[in-house]
Design a protein around this nucleic acid. Structure first.
Lengths: 258, 258
DNA sequence: GAGGGACACGGTACGCCGTACGGAGATGGG
DNA sequence: CCCATCTCCGTACGGCGTACCGTGTCCCTC
């Protein structure tokens, strides 16, 4: 459950990998590579999608590709950099239709941003656990940042507020998708469904729970559990998104700004 | 950087540990224990606070306590359960003044909730990386849930919306604190400061960044970097919190609800 | 056509990790 | 007094990331 850490090595090498283009395949000595970075990254993404970051190991990825573990190190400096590459490749898939962020009013645009981020984390749950304090500054991230800024461009906001709005909306999604996604993770890893888990745990809760100490929880918990219990992932996201956008509306449509 | 997973074992054992009270220390055969769960948990919390979840290993915790690694297993079933206990103990420290969540109007109360969660993650950054899909239903979590519900009680909202509001506000904090906290993590782990990292990376960014493809980013990035660059953790939190509370206000103060 | 340097591949090994297993020594109850 | 029970923990296993180094292949030069 610890956060994976990303490329800590040579920034030059990392950037060259992230921006690997149709670079010079000029004839070089040595055998022709049978493997390349793209194949490694996509195998790693496939593995992480299916079994989570915990299952992602260099040996597993190598096995998936039918090569020796150490062969990966010919193409990628280490696991941290591989995760960076995975993340950037996942980000690059976002917004297949770039127009979605410049269509409609600010509200529709920001909603498109929120939903795109939501989809990202549903598609690639492991992305949630990648530390982004020093993000991989690759083409995927650059494109994402550009497109999300476009969603809040032209509203007459100062640049700093544009950046803040994007950060807040994407941050909100990160926070909200977390609790939900981890339930699915838990089910996959433990093989125990949400219902089974609750059925096994509830009797012990009943024993220790003191309704006099926690009257509000005693009143709200069962109702919320009943209505949200079958746990519809979208519910708190949709609810929170409306609140957040309403609040952003107060800023954006402030009369003093005409 | 993968997410730590929490107690996957026997729920009865987990619950008994979480709710370990001044339980029966009735005379039992065998030597008097020289170690107890509380000492293990607090040593583990100290270690994780100082060096992050990555550094948290059973051997390290045991060494910190001056005992053999396997001794820990006498008191705690495994690492997952230990993390559960750590989290619940961190949650139990929140809201030292319980009145803060019932003082003032709904806005002041929810702000208190948001700030308490913010403080939690600043104090215990590792808490951010603990998967909470199946949270440890201990006294700390119960108390937190109760207190946070009280902040939105008495507003005439349906119970489900009370639960949703709490989830959304705490989720927002999770999402927002993430990007910020991980920067500090990265600095601690790599020994490279934010400025050094950016100085090393920027030249390569300049090489590959295409201002024509990313005009909005080219305009906003430098301004935001200039103003937020020294990276004031509070900034996007404060900004987002105002937006979110404004939006919640639209719901809470809806005239149709009087 | 021959030689050499650069490169891809990958086996072995080291120091970590979580933890299963079982032994040694202490303790209190019958 | 004895023994069931409990604490403590050394050893060991299978996994991890990856440093190091050997092997074999290919292109470039002569």
């Amino acid at each position: 459950m610890a956060s994976e850490f990303t490329g800590t090595g040579d920034p030059a090498r990392s950037m060259a990998l992230l921006w690997r283009g149709a670079a010079e395949p000029g004839p070089r000595p040595g055998p022709r590579p049978g493997l390349d970075v793209d194949r490694i990254v996509s195998a790693a993404v496939r593995l992480a999608d299916a079994e989570g970051l915990v299952a992602l190991s260099m040996r597993r990825v190598a096995a998936e590709l039918g090569v020796g573990a150490m062969t990966l190190y010919t193409h990628v400096p280490g696991k941290g950099e591989l995760v960076d590459l995975m993340l950037d490749s996942a980000l690059a898939e976002m917004y297949p239709d770039e127009r979605s962020v410049v269509t409609g009013g600010w509200r529709a645009r920001l909603e498109a941003v929120a939903r795109a981020n939501w989809d990202l984390f549903l598609r690639h749950p492991w992305a949630l656990h990648v530390a982004t304090g020093r993000p991989p500054l690759g083409p995927g991230l650059m494109r994402k940042y550009e497109l999300e800024l476009r969603a809040v461009d032209g509203l007459g906001l100062p640049e700093v507020q544009m950046d803040l709005l994007v950060t807040v909306v994407t941050g909100f999604v990160r926070g909200t998708v977390g609790g939900v996604q981890e339930k699915a993770d838990a089910e996959r890893v433990t093989g125990i469904t949400e219902d089974q888990w609750w059925a096994a745990t509830e009797p012990y809760v009943a024993q220790v729970f003191d309704a006099e100490r926690y009257p509000t929880a005693a009143r709200v918990g069962p109702v919320a559990g009943e209505e949200l219990g079958a746990y519809d992932p979208e519910r708190s996201f949709e609810f929170g998104l409306v609140r957040l956008l309403d609040g952003i509306g107060v800023l954006v449509e402030r009369p003093s700004r005409g």
